[in-house]
Design a protein around this nucleic acid. Structure first.
Length: 872
DNA sequence: ATAGGGTTAG
């Protein structure tokens, strides 16, 4: 406290402040270097200047006073001394300026800092290395990177390592990694020696830019220079390898660190988590606790996502409790992580609880809560929360927008999405690529591909996600050709990634183009995407839907960590191909592995049962879903059950079942029954059911045709006529049947009755020959199921039959592929009964395996038999 | 003297 006493007893401060303006004029003459403009804005700067004789002693006094004020963190007082001593070049030393600048930096007093800088230049004090460093430090700490750079550029030639580091680090913090690296190069060219801190910055740049080679080179360099043993460097290296997804190397480096600190532990825990090793992350966390390492806030935040990932709510809750005991429970980022953790553990009520009791909320908290509601399928609450945010005046960023758009997408309502779209346009956020991508995704998920496309086209800064989103949208919305086309249009500078493949493969799957699928599989292998879980699943699904069930199974067996999706793909695959028993066996195996089926996997197993006519098993799983897993059946599940009952001929039971449903049945549920009515020729029930469907979907032609066929088969010509008039008055167009086949990598499409094919004569002859042989050898009678052609005679009807697209495609396949090769045909609608017989016969007489995929399932014809055994 | 780890989307 001696310095404080000194300060007060010897201070000339009070006198100096009352000095007259005359001094100012006097100073002007003495210090002509000062620009007058500086004066006008800092008129008090020039006060006090006494005569020269006592300079040295007075200077020392002033310096001491400044230093002691700074030591006491009295910035204002220190500032008063320099502002009032103004332009006395000799009175204030570099040390004093340094300590003021340090204090300005620490208290982030930008104005004082700038003023000090001005005084320094005005007073003509030479900016030496140390003063330069302090100035840069002050500007950086006050958030003025431009100011810092300006000073720096003038003293760069004499800047020390610390000064370089200050700038390097600030650029890193602002995510200007390339600028930081440029500066590093400059530093090397000037011969300034980097130190360990320099390397931590540089490693961070390489980690974020994913520059593997450069980073590894720096690693070697760091070891050579002997910085490897420093924790900060070690930690940066661990993070570097983790970011490059070389987690084994990261773990090895971590293990070899002799003096791990909290940051080392936190780094490796979050690295394991982000590299898909949540269990390892938890193990490490436990090691850390057992090792007696003291835990900090970042530890909690690093370990919570692992609980979320593993759905380990009890551990999450324990950590939550621990964080309260450690006094961190009010920390904002911790609360945000907790919201996320509880919601990912399907405990949205706890998330709400935390969100509601938080004293302060950041935009991150709101975003986390919107996602929590979305995860819990409370889409309206998620959207309402966004509106609340707007009302409360929270600054909306792109994270919020993408999250709320995701809620709209999941809800499947473009109405809500459109409101967000308008908000985005109003607030000029459309130029943000992520926002544009989220909008595209929302429209795609709502089935509006035109709008998605128009956003895509007007987005200037498209990234790979933009392409993936549109490709995936086309794939899933029934435009597989557009998806494939778009994939070919990705520009060179944008590299496709694993997700691109996962978006594209469903297109191949829906086209059933095995050749094309194998090509893409090869591409996936070459590009090294095979280990991506989404890609693995998409490949298995593609093989299933291209009819290559065995290949799908081989792939399935090779998938190391099978997720629920993996199992569901394979179960659905067996179901589609009519292997109900295999589907059931796999379902059981999945449950034994401890994987909980969800509603999608129940749709798969129920369809598998219905496609194989396993009625008891169907009920067994339906009850299991409700009782054991508390999953409320949705329309799809009900449709499966109706399908199952109808195929078994239990039409009355199916009808009662529909009427007992707790939710409103839709046209697919009634449609399943209508199909059953056709098979079992129940015209009365069919009429009743059809009327319900026509009310629900008055514009869907398929159902009118189905009823018309039912009438025809019952020879109710009057009714057929009336129905035909009804269709005519609605001006409905029949959705044309179309089939396609892939030969030598090219896809041939056949539309019913289409006569334009170059090989049409050959094909026609083939079909007619087969039909003729069928008549002779199997007493086959062409089935006159052609309701919409009642006035035609049998000859015309038969001709129309011969023109069915699946017959044409099968004929083309036989004619254009080597003997003994299997034939794969895909049809957009359900296969017709007559064509089904035709395919059976062709498989017998040609000895070929014919795989026909229709809109509902696979039919595999071998030696005159079909794998569907009548269940279709 | 300057620093290394942690929260939100697709």
């Amino acid at each position: 406290m001696a310095s404080a006493a000194l300060l007060y007893t010897t201070s000339p401060l009070h006198f100096s402040l009352s000095s007259s303006t005359n001094h100012r004029k006097y100073k002007l003459h003495k210090h002509t270097r000062i620009r007058p403009t500086s004066f006008s804005s800092n008129s008090h700067l020039a006060v006090l200047h006494t005569s020269a004789p006592h300079h040295h002693t007075r200077g020392l006094d002033l310096n001491n006073k400044i230093l002691s004020n700074c030591r006491l963190r009295k910035l204002t007082e220190a500032m008063e001394i320099i502002t009032s001593s103004g332009f006395d070049t000799t009175s204030i030393g570099s040390d004093a300026y340094c300590s003021i600048l340090q204090l300005c930096a620490e208290t982030q007093s930008s104005d004082h800092g700038k003023k000090t800088h001005l005084i320094i230049t005005s007073s003509g004090t030479e900016i030496d290395t140390l003063l330069g460093q302090k100035l840069v430090f002050m500007y950086v700490k006050c958030g003025d990177l431009i100011g810092a750079r300006k000073v720096f550029d003038e003293i760069a030639y004499k800047a020390n390592t610390v000064t370089w580091n200050l700038l390097l680090n600030e650029y890193v913090k602002r995510k200007c990694f390339n600028e930081s690296l440029l500066l590093f190069k400059h530093m090397n060219s000037l011969g300034t020696k980097p130190n360990s801190i320099t390397f931590t910055c540089i490693l961070k740049c390489f980690a974020t830019l994913l520059s593997a080679e450069e980073g590894v080179m720096v690693h070697g360099y760091v070891i050579k220079l002997g910085f490897g043993s420093q924790n900060a460097v070690g930690n940066a290296l661990v993070l570097f390898y983790a970011k490059l997804r070389r987690i084994e190397t990261a773990i090895k480096l971590f293990d070899e660190m002799p003096h791990k600190d909290v940051i080392s532990w936190n780094t490796i825990i979050s690295s394991c988590m982000s590299n898909g090793l949540p269990r390892k992350a938890i193990e490490l966390f436990i090691d850390m606790l057992l090792g007696g390492v003291s835990i900090d806030l970042a530890t909690f935040i690093s370990v919570l996502p692992t609980c979320a990932e593993l759905g380990h709510v009890s551990l999450g809750r324990a950590i939550h409790g621990y964080s309260i005991k450690s006094g961190f429970s009010l920390e904002l980022p911790l609360c945000n992580s907790l919201i996320e953790m509880y919601s990912k553990c399907s405990n949205v009520d706890s998330s709400i609880q935390i969100f509601k009791t938080m004293k302060q909320r950041s935009v991150v908290s709101w975003t986390a809560m919107i996602m929590a509601y979305t995860r819990a399928e409370h889409y309206d609450q998620a959207i309402d929360l966004f509106l609340d945010m707007e009302e409360e005046g929270v600054k909306i960023d792109e994270f919020v927008i993408t999250s709320v758009l995701h809620a709209c997408a999941c809800k499947g309502s473009s109405k809500d999405g459109q409101r967000i779209h308008e908000y985005v346009l109003r607030n000029g956020m459309i130029s943000n690529t992520s926002v544009a991508n989220a909008l595209m995704d929302m429209y795609a998920k709502c089935g509006n591909m035109e709008e998605a496309r128009s956003i895509f086209d007007s987005t200037l800064s498209k990234n790979i996600i933009s392409w993936n989103t549109l490709i995936g949208g086309y794939s899933k919305n029934g435009f597989p050709n557009d998806a494939l086309y778009l994939f070919g249009k990705i520009p060179q500078r944008i590299r496709p990634n694993a997700i691109t493949m996962a978006c594209l493969l469903p297109a191949v799957a829906s086209l059933s183009c095995l050749e094309r699928g194998r090509e893409i599989h090869a591409y996936v292998i070459r590009a090294g995407y095979v280990r991506n879980h989404h890609v693995e699943n998409a490949l298995a699904d593609m093989y299933v839907k291209c009819g290559a069930l065995t290949l799908a199974r081989v792939l399935f067996d090779r998938i190391y960590e099978k997720s629920l999706v993996t199992w569901t793909v394979m179960i659905a695959g067996y179901g589609m191909h009519g292997y109900g028993a295999d589907a059931i066996a796999l379902f059981k195996q999945m449950r034994r592995k401890g994987i909980k089926p969800d509603k999608v996997s129940f749709v798969a197993i129920l369809y598998a049962c219905s496609h194989s006519g396993l009625i008891h098993e169907g009920w067994y799983f339906f009850n299991m879903m409700r009782n054991e897993y508390q999953i409320e059946p949705n329309l799809e599940h009900y449709a499966c059950m109706v399908d199952l009952l109808s195929r078994a001929g239990r039409l009355k039971k199916a009808y009662e079942f529909i009427n007992s449903m707790p939710i409103e049945p839709d046209s697919t549920v009634w449609g399943a029954l209508l199909c059953g009515c056709r098979v079992y020729r129940d015209v009365n029930l069919a009429e009743k059911v059809a009327e319900k469907i026509f009310k629900l979907e008055p514009d869907n032609t398929g159902y009118y045709v189905l009823l018309a066929n039912i009438y025809t088969e019952a020879e109710k010509w009057e009714e057929v006529k009336r129905l035909r008039e009804r269709i005519g008055s609605r001006r409905l167009k029949k959705n044309p049947g179309c089939s396609w086949i892939e030969t030598r990598g090219k896809v041939q499409v056949f539309v019913s009755g289409d006569n334009s094919h170059p090989q049409k004569e050959e094909i026609k002859k083939f079909v007619e020959d087969v039909v003729k042989r069928m008549k002779e050898e199997e007493q086959y009678v062409p089935n006159a199921r052609y309701a919409l052609m009642i006035n035609a005679d049998d000859r015309v009807k038969e001709e129309a039959l011969c023109g069915h697209s699946e017959k044409l495609a099968i004929a083309f396949g036989v004619l254009n592929s080597a003997d003994g090769r299997p034939i794969h045909v895909t049809k957009n609608l359900r296969v017709c009964g007559d064509c089904h017989e035709f395919a059976k016969f062709v498989s017998k007489v040609t000895g070929r395996e014919i795989v026909l995929r229709d809109s509902n399932r696979f039919h595999k014809f071998e030696e005159g038999r079909c794998s569907c055994r009548g269940y279709w």
